[in-house]
Design a protein around this nucleic acid. Structure first.
Lengths: 193, 193
DNA sequence: CTAATTTTGTACAGATCATTACAGAAACAA
DNA sequence: TTGTTTCTGTAATGATCTGTACAAAATTAG
């Protein structure tokens, strides 16, 4: 049964691995990098997680969890709905433009880097994307009931529209220097709702 | 002066390399892969292009050239401006969803994979992004003059808004199965102009 | 205590990586 | 012809890659 106990906490190791994959990307993040960032030796890493791919998957799921929490924290705030949607966009603009290494969004990075090669990753990212879609759809319905959001279009369509702008912003912010160019998108997107 | 002549055409080699980088990504595309896809030996490749990085840069510039041409071909068509903008979005949706390996947009792939690591790549992609911005701004101005596009907002702001949706679509189409979810974005984006 | 079990660190394996060295091939110049 | 230059293919180089083998360490059970 129980032998020598683990000297690490699985979750904090996954958190560290997530950071490493986030900064370096899947391919460019070596197992050596992962050992350094997690503090584990190769033996422990492979014993606990089996492979680099598997650790990446767990790191990605962890990112989804944290990202969803962060998004919901903003969307569930009190106050006008458009203010919350604006806050969501402005939050990622702030994060992206202030990040010196421009890690961007790990979900998008995973979709681009691994989506075409690992169907399991593609499915996981699609699921994460649709969880944001669902949350946004719910918010849009609330706004339509209160009259804050136009009822000309189905809430789901508005949610998909907003989500697309949202992810588009995160791509642009990978290379964009001009914050105004991103804020223009925020204004126009919100005024379309 | 002149010695043995080259047995290949530089441009078609760059085209082949572009395809290889597009499918595999920078990291995962080995020099062996590049030799296979271009038909050149290692000696010739390195003699002509110096390094994998440099070949990638040239392939990327070539993609920008082709992509810009393809976009302008659609935007310069006769007919209503919103029809042209719709055609632009629908074209990439068709391409992306019909591609079994989901290569997506090489400019976005480069921004995500290399943007944070190679400032030269980041600058090149930003320049490419802004060339689309400029073309869209011009189209928006035309539409505003003819009354096809709302004049409530500056043409540049509308161009940036459209461009963000456009690139957002290409990210979503990396993992999206539901074409309707993407078409919803097209409809909502166009109706906001 | 001993036996069993699991973790840990290190060393290593085998493959693959980008790049270079270099000899022969193919052109031109004289 | 001979010399010069450039290109081509092959072989090698040294680094780095993911993953494994394995013995020592640390725990529980009996």
């Amino acid at each position: 049964m129980s032998g020598r106990p683990r000297e690490f906490n699985d979750l904090s190791v996954i958190n560290s691995a997530m950071e490493a994959f986030w900064v370096k990307g899947f391919e460019e993040c070596s197992t050596e990098d992962l050992c350094k960032s997690t503090g584990l030796g190769r033996g422990s890493l492979y014993n606990a997680f089996g492979s680099k791919q598997n650790l990446y998957k767990q790191a990605l799921l962890r990112y989804f969890e944290l990202g969803h929490q962060a998004n919901m924290e903003i969307l569930d705030r009190p106050g006008p709905i458009k203010d919350r949607l604006r806050a969501l966009m402005e939050a990622v603009i702030d994060i992206d433009l202030n990040d010196p290494v421009r890690r961007g969004c790990l979900a998008i990075n995973a979709a681009i880097e691994r989506g075409g090669k690992d169907p399991e990753i593609a499915r996981a990212v699609a699921h994460h994307f649709s969880s944001l879609e669902q949350a946004l759809c719910h918010i849009m319905e609330l706004g339509q009931r209160s009259g804050e959001i136009s009822s000309n279009r189905p809430a789901m369509q508005l949610a998909r529209f907003f989500r697309c702008s949202f992810y588009g912003l995160r791509v642009l912010s990978k290379v964009e220097q001009d914050r105004g160019a991103l804020m223009d998108v925020v204004e126009t997107t919100l005024s379309a709702l």
